[in-house]
Amino acid sequence: MCTYLTTTEQVEGTGLGARGWFPITQAVVYFDHPQEAKVEHALCIDFRAGGGDPSERVSVELDAHSARTLAESILATLAHDEVRALGVE
């Protein structure tokens, strides 16, 4: 299936692309046919600069289980006492 389910988040960060690091302002999350991964559907994230150059992006395509594991890992890391003690959020 082609899904139209797309979530776009405004984010702050940097990504490493083919020409070096660049600022990331946008994360586009969707579940659909991947460009490359050998699964029928993948959780895809395009980290984009959001400026004029469409090639300034870092993309990942993960199978559903991997994506869920990654999401849980991110949340667990952010919830860790050492991170919370930094008071960054």
Binding site: Y4, T6, T8, Q26, V28, Y30, Q35, D46, R48, G50, P54, S55, R57, S59
Partner: peptide
Amino acid sequence: GASSGDAAAAARAAGG
């Protein structure tokens, strides 16, 4: 002028 993958990502980010 972008690659097909980059253009697809840009189109999706714009809402399709």
